[in-house]
Design a protein around this nucleic acid. Structure first.
Length: 220
DNA sequence: GCGACAG
DNA sequence: ATCTTGTCGC
């Protein structure tokens, strides 16, 4: 039987790419919130064996949706914990390129460096597109939870990799993706959290739109 | 062997 | 992620 993917080979690739991610975190981008203008959020929904990857372009100041793009394709491999990027990143990368403009920040549904090899899907996408990125996950994948002065963090690979917060009754893991500090990541995400959505605006809209498209019945 | 395990 | 009915509560 042909195998859909080679686990050990994928892991090897991740270890190589992770080195670049760790280096990028040593010299994060200078992200004056005043200089941030475009933020992209990505997410996917599935229907009938097909995945619909969506990238939404958001105006950081107003939180308004500018436009979005969709990439429909058959998932390359099944879901395997730790290898999510090999399943969903290709669609997201294509979708972002279809927007026709590289944003200042990309927010991804999933972890960044809080990953077994430091290469969660958020880091993977940021690295490939060379755009600072942030991971926003709803469940823990890897790392040690530590509480410090009333704040909760997730440590991984000797780094304070993610900040854990509660928003609208659910836990969110905000992690460094690529070329960004945890302080900046949290500062930016915090400004995009609204009582209206359980997720920050970029991923909330990407989630809603991808589901609308994947689940829509005849018409529209 | 056992527990953990993003979406 | 997706598959899925009814049920509890404001």
């Amino acid at each position: 039987m042909p195998k859909y993917f080679d686990y050990k080979r994928a892991v090897k690739i991740q270890r190589i790419l992770a080195e670049k991610v760790f280096k990028s975190l040593e010299n994060p981008s200078l992200l004056d919130p005043d200089n941030v203008r475009y933020v992209v959020g990505v997410d996917a929904a599935y229907s009938k064996g097909l995945m619909y990857g969506v990238a939404v372009l958001i105006d950081y100041c107003s939180g308004e949706l500018i436009r979005y793009s969709v990439v429909k394709k058959k998932p390359p491999i099944p879901y395997v914990p730790g290898l999510l990027a090999f399943r969903e990143a290709p669609a997201y990368i294509s979708a972002v390129r279809k927007l026709g403009i590289l944003p200042d920040i990309i927010v991804v549904d999933g972890h960044g460096v809080s990953h077994p090899r430091g290469l969660g899907i958020a880091s993977h996408i940021g690295l490939v597109l060379d755009v600072p990125s942030i991971g926003v996950a709803k469940k823990k994948l890897y790392g040690e939870v530590r509480e410090e002065n009333g704040e909760v963090f997730l440590y991984a690979h000797g780094l304070r990799a993610a900040k854990i917060v509660s928003h609208r009754g659910q836990t969110l893991y905000i992690s460094m993706g690529y070329k960004i500090s945890l302080d900046d990541a949290w500062r930016i995400i915090q400004r995009m959290l609204t009582p209206r959505y359980k997720l920050p605006i970029p991923t909330a809209l990407a989630d809603r739109i991808s589901k609308e498209i994947a689940h829509r019945r005849r018409g529209h």
